[in-house]
Amino acid sequence: MSFDNSDTDLSAVLDSDLQDFIQVQQQKAQLQSSAHKLTDMCWDRCIGERPGARLDAKTEVCLTNCVERFLDASIFLVQRLQKNLSSHG
């Protein structure tokens, strides 16, 4: 979901309240979209052959680590790229 400002000037119709609201909703949509991707990936890594009656503690730890390490990996790689870019020019 994105509101493209290029062909319609939203500020003509939307006051700053609404623009703030839309920005928050966009962030929410982005967060939910990332959460869906992570759920997909971490489900495959952490959930076994058959679903249990509840998520056990071990599975929850696995899911937590899966999400946190993904974010760490993503930050690490961006920083590494930045370092490479700055050292090469």
């Binding site: 679903p51 249990g52 899911l63 946190e68």
Partner: peptide, 22 residues
């Protein structure tokens, strides 16, 4: 049914961890 419930639990857990970490 069980799988759907656990998938929902997983999503809720993931979004909580993700938000906290961010």
């Amino acid at each position: 049914a069980m799988c759907m419930d656990r998938y929902t639990d997983t999503y809720n857990h993931v979004i909580r961890v993700y938000t906290t970490k961010l």
